[in-house]
Structures are given as structure tokens and as C-alpha cells.
């Protein structure tokens, strides 16, 4: 145990901490952007023209139907390839691992979040919206006072699940050498030939983060339960 604790001091400790911080940054920004874009996609699909709905639906299906790892490879290796084949280095977008990671997580998350919000919109009883119109609320008020609060309550549990899923996906980013938690612990594990130990500790750390996130989600659900409507 003392030998394990010795990893937490000095250079190793600093690397592990920076990895943990990077994992949290990737997680928070990735799921934040994902949720925002997901919401916008759901709104565009619901209120926009039919054509936009079809295009967005196809894009969402493609992202949900392909592995995250393949998407990441495409983002990370695809940019430089485009540069080479276009022959114009200035005109192309080449992402460093961290940027590719954030972008990949946000896009992947947006596809899944948009489906959650879409289901949320559809689950709100029509009667509630009609009632809001009847008592004289305008469209904006109906959205902010009726639809959004009810939807928050409906989609919260699945949003917490999705956010947890994205945390677990951040570990995949180590494959394209994003310097997050798994990447940093891997280096130490390889150096000291301690694979089982390093992966066990990684598993425990991610497990703890997931359980904390789940507990926060349940607490939020309890606090927001006043928005819950009675199911008929």
C-alpha cells in the first residue's frame, strides 16, 4: 500500500492529477456542448421544415450506428489526409488529439442527447400545451413555463445515463493519445510493468466518478420532482 501511495507524490502524482483534470474537462465540455447541440437538433427537427428533419435524422442515425472509435479515427486522421489530397496545407483543418476528442465527444453526445430531447417533447401531453394556450400564454411562455420544466423532469434520468456514458467514452480517447487519465496511468503502468494494478486502479477511479455522477443525478431528480406531472 505504501508503494501505491508513493505514486501519488512527485512527478507521477502530478501527471495523474493532470490526467484526471483533462478527463473532467473533456467530460464536462463534451457533454455540455453535446447537450446544447442535441437540444438544438431536437428543436430544429420538431419546429423546422420537413427537409431539415430528414437530414438531421439521417445524420443522427449515422452517428448512432457507427462506433465512437471509428468516428475518432476519422476526425483525427481524416483532417491531415484531406490536406494531403487537396494539396493545400492552409485550407484544411487538422485537429490535435485534444480538439479531436472534444469535437468527437460533442458530436457523439449531440446525436444521443437529441433523441432524448425528441422523446421528451413527444411525451408531454398535448392537453398541457392546449391548456396553456387556453389560459392565454404565448408560445414563448408555453415553452419556458410548461414544456421545458416538464421535459427536464422527463429526460433527466436518461440525461444522467448519457452523461455517464460519455465519461466512459473519454477513456477511448487515450487511443489517439489524448493526455487524459487512462493515458497518464498507462505510461506509469508500462514503465513499471504493472498492467493489472494500473487498470484495476483506473477501473476503481472511473467507477467512483460514475457513482458520484449517478448520486448527483438522483439528488437533482428529487429536487426537481415538483415539476413531475401525474401520469394518467
Amino acid at each position: 500500500m505504501t508503494s501505491l501511495l508513493s505514486y501519488l507524490t512527485g512527478e507521477d502524482g502530478r501527471n495523474i492529477l493532470s490526467g484526471l483534470i483533462n478527463t473532467c474537462i473533456l467530460w464536462v465540455i463534451g457533454s455540455g456542448l453535446g447537450a446544447i447541440f442535441g437540444f438544438l437538433i431536437a428543436v430544429a427537427r420538431r419546429y423546422g421544415p420537413r427537409l431539415i428533419d430528414y437530414v438531421l435524422q439521417a445524420s443522427v442515425e449515422v452517428i448512432r450506428g457507427t462506433p465512437f472509435l471509428v468516428q475518432i479515427y476519422l476526425l483525427y486522421f481524416g483532417g491531415p489526409y484531406l490536406c494531403l489530397s487537396l494539396g493545400e496545407a492552409s485550407a484544411c483543418l487538422t485537429l490535435d488529439p485534444f480538439e479531436a476528442g472534444i469535437l468527437g465527444l460533442s458530436v457523439y453526445g449531440a446525436a444521443y442527447y437529441s433523441e432524448l430531447f425528441r422523446a421528451g417533447f413527444e411525451a408531454i401531453p398535448r392537453g398541457h400545451v392546449e391548456a396553456a394556450e387556453t389560459v392565454g400564454l404565448d408560445r414563448w411562455q408555453t415553452l419556458t413555463r410548461i414544456i421545458l420544466p416538464e421535459m427536464t423532469m422527463l429526460v433527466l434520468p436518461s440525461m444522467v445515463n448519457m452523461t455517464i456514458l460519455l465519461l466512459k467514452e473519454t477513456a477511448v480517447l487515450s487511443i489517439i493519445s489524448v493526455k487524459e487519465l487512462k493515458f497518464q496511468v498507462d505510461i506509469i503502468g508500462n514503465r513499471d510493468y504493472a498492467f493489472v494494478e494500473s487498470f484495476t486502479i483506473l477501473a476503481l477511479v472511473y467507477w467512483a466518478l460514475v457513482e458520484i455522477c449517478g448520486a448527483l443525478g438522483r439528488a437533482a431528480e428529487r429536487r426537481l420532482s415538483r415539476y413531475r406531472f401525474a401520469h394518467s
Binding site: I164, K168, E169, T170, A171, V172, S174, I175, K182, F195, V196, F199, T200, L202, A203, Y206, W207, V210, E211
Partner: peptide
């Protein structure tokens, strides 16, 4: 198994 990344489970 639901709380840890599959990548780490596979490596473990």
C-alpha cells in the same frame, strides 16, 4: 461493469 469503461475492462 456498467460503471467502468469497456476499454479498461478489456485490458484488465
Amino acid at each position: 461493469f456498467r460503471g467502468t469503461p469497456l476499454l479498461i475492462q478489456l485490458l484488465l
